[in-house]
Nucleic acid binder design. Structure first.
Lengths: 206, 206
DNA sequence: TTCATTGTTGGACACGGTGTTCGACAACGG
DNA sequence: CCGTTGTCGAACACCGTGTCCAACAATGAA
């Protein structure tokens, strides 16, 4: 039925906005409480106080709703445009950590590895693009074989998500993004530097 | 009802052995075909040609069966006994990769991150114990603060599982364990060395 | 304010998977 | 051979999913 698609021209009906917002917030809350897999559509519409049929008028299923939530918080695509060629290597990871950790429950709900397979794949995809862009920026002069580059990309993204996951769990919620980023860089960059035979400025050990 | 527990004294009934084996094999196959989450108990008993009630006479649910499969293939607990104090640091990772990758479908089914949350947690647990044991072996003279050590442990295990996962996926099935291990060590050990201020022998870059 | 449009509602429904129970039956092993 | 024990399959209650529809209510434009 595809209700209330804001097709640029018309403003969406208030009711539509209200319903969608309620559903998104409900799912976000519930994910934070129990984890994504444990939440049922029934739970969501109960929490959101929305009719069952209304839910299915807007979203195909639980995954679809999750994707909508994810779409709201534009995970930075490769904004390679803004990068200067002489920026320090991987200088943007702190910004990324800050972005994800900026206190918004949304991020925690989605970034956590508890979230659905779809969302995880989606996030991974974007981060991999980011990493590839950075590597291709760095290897200006160098010719590196694709296999090695792909391996490093997987390593970078896998570790990043691992750190996000670890950070988001209750025990570490108090850690500042700076510290997480520093730990990440201290552990990851030496290996990248080693494998790609690059000369990265390595953070001091803490 | 707890059927046929081999309580040391008595040999288990043939029928029990047969049933359990059939169920384990069925689940293993199905995981490899569709991934764990997509498999239903119904599928398993159909494939295994076992009555529904029989299934529940042996296992609580799907997760329980998965745990039983996992228990069969003793993931090496910290065999710290066998380690000499002068072994090279993390020298055992190759053995671990070989162990997991030794062609057995079982490992692929279980080690893959597609498998249930329970199994994943279980595996992670054991690997973390391994890593902790190694770190405490290495810091004989040194006094390292627990936070740093825990961070490194998470980094090691998270990355290891990431590599396992990547390796097990179809495209890379042909890679020898040696190459995977080498990539792992090249990327991971420099960071560990950096953070723990240890002097590890680093593998050459490839 | 009026009114046609559009979204929302709740109930009914078919479907499929879960986990339990029970009596009849068959395989086991001493 | 025979008592024990495991297996079978059917029936059942339960729950979540996703669809459909007719009645109703909010909306926004005239």
């Amino acid at each position: 039925m595809a209700i209330g698609r804001s097709d640029g021209t018309t403003r969406p009906d208030r009711r539509v906005t209200r319903t969608r917002r309620a559903l998104k917030e409900a799912l976000t809350d519930l994910i934070l409480e129990r984890g994504y897999e444990a939440v049922t559509v029934q739970d969501v519409i109960d929490r959101a106080d929305v009719g069952r049929s209304t839910f299915y008028a807007h979203f195909i299923d639980k995954d679809d709703l999750l994707m909508a939530i994810l779409a709201d918080l534009d995970v930075p695509g490769p904004d390679t445009e803004r990068w200067k060629p002489d920026d320090p290597a991987f200088g943007w990871t702190l910004e990324l950590f800050r972005h994800f950790g900026s206190g918004k429950r949304l991020f925690k709900a989605v970034a956590s590895s508890q979230s659905g397979a779809l969302a995880r794949r989606e996030t991974t995809q974007r981060l991999e693009d980011l990493a590839r862009a950075e590597l291709s920026r760095l290897k200006v002069a160098r010719k590196l074989d694709p296999f090695r580059v792909e391996t490093v990309v997987r390593f970078l993204v896998g570790t990043f998500i691992g750190f996000m996951d670890w950070w988001m769990r209750a025990e570490n919620e108090h850690l500042p993004a700076e510290q997480v980023d520093h730990a990440f860089r201290s552990l990851v960059l030496p290996g990248v530097s080693n494998v790609l035979e690059l000369d990265l400025e390595l953070p001091k050990a803490l």
